[in-house]
Amino acid sequence: MNDDAIKIPSIKEQSFTLKNIAIYLEKCISCRSENMSFIGGEIDDTDKLILSSLVRNGVRKAVMDEVGISDRTLRNHLNKLGILFDADNDIKIIMTAINLGIIDTHGNIL
């Protein structure tokens, strides 16, 4: 028997719990979808490449080299993303992009 399993004694309680989990997941997916449709038109391919590279490399200089853009261009894109995501630093920008499903924690573009 698996010790990590949730111990719910009756089928009725299990059904109720699973239903609540499904409702919660639907709300999360719906919210993410709404956020992406709102933000989706504002984010271009360069923004996505910058976000991906920033997750993988962690430093702006490496992002500039990898994406092939200048410091000024990078700053402009990150300023735009900061305003769009209501984030005041690179970490918050990255976390918002991950939470919105634009990139994953490995920097893969979704």
Rank of each mutant, 00 (worst) to 15 (best):
N89S: 10
R32F: 03
I11E: 14
I98D: 02
K48N: 02
R56Q: 15
L78N: 00
L100S: 02
N79V: 02
G40I: 00
M64I: 07
A97T: 11
D86P: 02
M36H: 05
I23M: 04
T73F: 00
I102R: 01
L54R: 07
I23D: 06
I94R: 05
N79W: 01
D4T: 04
P9I: 11
L78K: 00
R72G: 05
N108D: 13
N35S: 11
I50L: 14
S52L: 01
D4M: 02
A97S: 15
I8M: 14
I69S: 03
I103T: 00
D88T: 01
A22E: 10
G82Q: 10
G58D: 07
I94D: 08
K92R: 14
N108G: 12
K19Q: 07
T73R: 00
N89C: 06
Y24V: 09
I102L: 10
T46Q: 02
C31Y: 07
I83R: 00
N89A: 01
I98L: 03
S30W: 04
T105E: 08
M1Y: 10
L81R: 01
I6M: 15
I98S: 04
N35H: 09
E42I: 00
S52C: 13
V67Q: 06
C31E: 04
S10Y: 12
N79L: 01
F16A: 14
D3I: 14
L74C: 07
R56Y: 07
N2C: 10
N20F: 08
D90C: 04
C28K: 14
D71H: 12
E26F: 09
C31P: 03
S70N: 13
N79Q: 02
E34H: 08
D88W: 01
K12E: 15
E66Q: 01
K12R: 13
I29T: 05
C28W: 06
V59R: 04
K92M: 13
R72K: 13
M95K: 13
T46K: 13
R60V: 05
S53F: 05
T105Q: 08
D104V: 06
D90A: 04
I94H: 08
V55R: 02
N89Y: 06
I11H: 13
N35K: 05
D4G: 04
L74T: 00
R60S: 08
D47K: 03
S30L: 10
G68N: 05
I103M: 00
I39E: 00
C31G: 06
I8Y: 07
M36N: 03
G82K: 09
I8W: 13
A5W: 09
I8P: 12
D3A: 13
A97I: 11
K27I: 06
L18V: 04
V55F: 02
S37D: 06
H106R: 10
K80Y: 01
G68A: 11
E26I: 06
K92H: 11
